[in-house]
Amino acid sequence: MKRWEHFSHQADIGVRGLGATMAEAFEQAALALTAVVTDPADVAHPDMIRICCDAPDAELLLADWLNALIYEMATRNMLFSRFDVHLEGSHLTAKVWGEPLEVMRHRPAVEVKGATYTELKVAQLPDGGWLAQCVVDV
């Protein structure tokens, strides 16, 4: 059931991850974030970085996770396409793989400014799966 999708916001764009676990939904939301910029299938993943965050609840943790990725994308000038997220309570550790942005190849549609708290939601679905979503400002 793991997958990602975008949803509509009038000025910007929503990212949504779905997975069997909350961690998997966070990984899929991260793929949706990359897909705002370019097709994740075009992003190779030879380089690995680590990300940690802590937050008082799962929703703020999702925003922190996406904001940490946005920060790494901006300061390392990289795109990411593979994610391994571990959650322990409100503590997130992740390994993230990607490659340096190449404008001519990746043709980035837009850069992401930040993950917002608009439509921010982390929830278990009736089928037992998890959803993680928010609108990102572009």
Partner: peptide, 10 residues
């Protein structure tokens, strides 16, 4: 500016 917004919002 984006980072200031992100951090202070939180």
């Amino acid at each position: 500016g984006h980072q200031i917004g992100t951090e202070f919002l939180r």
